Computed example of a mutant assay.
Amino acid sequence: MDPRVSFITLVVRDLDRSRDFYVRGLGWAPELDVPNEVVMIRVGDKLVLSLWQEDAAVGELGPIARGDGAPPFTVAHNVSSPEDVDRVLAEAAAAGAAAPTGAIARDWGGYTGYFADPDGFRWEVAYNPGLIGQSVL
Results as ranks from 00 to 15, higher is better:
residue 1 M to F: 03
residue 3 P to C: 00
residue 3 P to S: 05
residue 4 R to D: 05
residue 5 V to K: 00
residue 5 V to S: 02
residue 6 S to Y: 08
residue 7 F to D: 09
residue 7 F to Y: 14
residue 9 T to R: 01
residue 10 L to E: 03
residue 11 V to F: 04
residue 11 V to P: 02
residue 12 V to R: 00
residue 14 D to C: 07
residue 15 L to R: 04
residue 16 D to M: 03
residue 16 D to G: 14
residue 16 D to Q: 10
residue 17 R to A: 10
residue 17 R to H: 05
residue 19 R to N: 03
residue 19 R to W: 10
residue 22 Y to C: 02
residue 25 G to N: 08
residue 27 G to L: 02
residue 28 W to Y: 07
residue 29 A to D: 07
residue 30 P to K: 04
residue 30 P to R: 03
residue 36 N to Q: 12
residue 37 E to P: 01
residue 38 V to H: 06
residue 42 R to P: 05
residue 42 R to I: 03
residue 46 K to W: 06
residue 46 K to L: 06
residue 49 L to C: 04
residue 49 L to M: 07
residue 50 S to L: 07
residue 53 Q to E: 15
residue 55 D to Y: 06
residue 55 D to Q: 10
residue 58 V to N: 00
residue 59 G to C: 01
residue 59 G to R: 13
residue 59 G to W: 05
residue 60 E to R: 13
residue 61 L to F: 14
residue 62 G to V: 07
residue 63 P to T: 12
residue 65 A to E: 14
residue 68 D to Q: 14
residue 68 D to G: 08
residue 68 D to E: 15
residue 68 D to N: 09
residue 68 D to F: 13
residue 69 G to A: 01
residue 70 A to V: 15
residue 72 P to S: 06
residue 73 F to L: 13
residue 73 F to V: 12
residue 75 V to D: 01
residue 77 H to K: 07
residue 77 H to M: 09
residue 78 N to M: 13
residue 78 N to Q: 08
residue 78 N to E: 00
residue 79 V to L: 06
residue 79 V to A: 02
residue 79 V to R: 04
residue 81 S to D: 03
residue 82 P to L: 01
residue 84 D to V: 03
residue 85 V to A: 04
residue 85 V to F: 11
residue 85 V to I: 11
residue 86 D to E: 13
residue 86 D to R: 09
residue 87 R to L: 11
residue 87 R to T: 14
residue 88 V to H: 04
residue 93 A to K: 14
residue 95 A to P: 10
residue 95 A to T: 03
residue 96 G to L: 02
residue 97 A to V: 14
residue 97 A to Y: 12
residue 102 G to D: 15
residue 103 A to G: 07
residue 108 W to N: 02
residue 109 G to F: 10
residue 111 Y to R: 12
residue 111 Y to H: 13
residue 112 T to Q: 11
residue 112 T to R: 08
residue 113 G to E: 11
residue 114 Y to G: 02
residue 115 F to G: 05
residue 115 F to Q: 01
residue 116 A to H: 12
residue 116 A to Q: 14
residue 117 D to H: 10
residue 117 D to S: 09
residue 120 G to Y: 13
residue 120 G to C: 05
residue 121 F to Y: 15
residue 123 W to V: 15
residue 123 W to F: 15
residue 124 E to Y: 12
residue 124 E to Q: 13
residue 125 V to G: 04
residue 125 V to I: 15
residue 125 V to S: 01
residue 126 A to C: 12
residue 126 A to Y: 12
residue 127 Y to P: 09
residue 128 N to R: 08
residue 128 N to Q: 11
residue 129 P to D: 08
residue 129 P to M: 06
residue 131 L to D: 14
residue 133 G to P: 08
residue 133 G to W: 06
residue 133 G to N: 10
residue 133 G to K: 11
residue 134 Q to C: 01
residue 134 Q to V: 10
residue 135 S to H: 12
residue 135 S to E: 11
residue 136 V to Y: 05
residue 137 L to E: 07
